[in-house]
């Protein structure tokens, strides 16, 4: 299946990046966690697969709808 872009639903700051390129991820498991409005808001795929590339670093500011990782669904 073609790679897809994982986007942040919110603007905010990258707080944690629990997954790296090559890691497998379950559906709805956080790849990146954005801190926004004092909440931990995960960027998570809808289905399981593998992280291809992480495009942000901890502490980065992100915009709403910004692509933060590339993901390969199973």
């Amino acid at each position: 299946m073609a790679d897809i872009e994982l986007k942040s639903d919110v603007s905010g700051r990258v707080w944690q990046i629990p997954k790296s390129a090559g890691d497998s991820v379950e559906a709805e498991e956080a790849v990146i966690i954005i801190e926004s409005m004092k909440m931990e808001i995960p960027v998570a795929p809808e289905q399981s697969g593998t992280v291809v590339k992480v495009l942000v670093a901890e502490g980065d500011e992100v915009e709403e709808d910004q692509t933060v990782a590339i993901f390969s669904p199973d």
Partner: peptide, 8 residues
């Protein structure tokens, strides 16, 4: 929806 700006 707390997943979007904590519901803000």
């Amino acid at each position: 929806d707390p997943r979007i700006y904590g519901g803000g």
